[in-house]
């Protein structure tokens, strides 16, 4: 009876772990994007980095039951997206307007 549950747990663990590795790779590429180029490109890279970090932290909370990771992940995901929109609006505005 417990075999199928163990199989499901193992599948979910490795799925989440593989996805976390892929997300970390995308996050590293986003760091590279954020460190080169101009302001809007950097903003885009930081936005992708917050996404990658937020999803990874959420998966860490699910896998290892670390509660503060969920709060950090929610803050990163929500504030990252909202902050990107606000800063993009600021970059769009010309000086003096």
């Amino acid at each position: 009876m417990t075999d199928i549950l163990a199989l499901a747990e193992l599948t979910f663990f490795w799925g989440a772990f593989t996805f976390m590795i892929a997300t970390a790779f995308a996050g590293l590429c986003a760091i590279r994007l954020a460190l080169k180029g101009e302001a809007v490109t950097s903003l885009m890279g930081v936005s992708a980095l917050t996404t990658a970090a937020g999803v990874s932290l959420y998966l860490i909370q699910i896998l290892f039951e670390i509660e503060f990771a969920r709060d950090t992940a929610i803050a990163l995901l929500v504030l990252g997206a909202v902050g990107t929109i606000i800063f993009a609006r600021l970059f769009r505005m010309e000086e003096g307007k």
């Binding site: 747990e9 599948t11 979910f12 799925g15 989440a16 996805f19 892929a22």
Partner: peptide, 12 residues
């Protein structure tokens, strides 16, 4: 849970 693992493999 197995299908959820598959979705995560698909997102990799």
């Amino acid at each position: 849970k197995i299908v959820a693992g598959g979705i995560m493999f698909a997102g990799t």
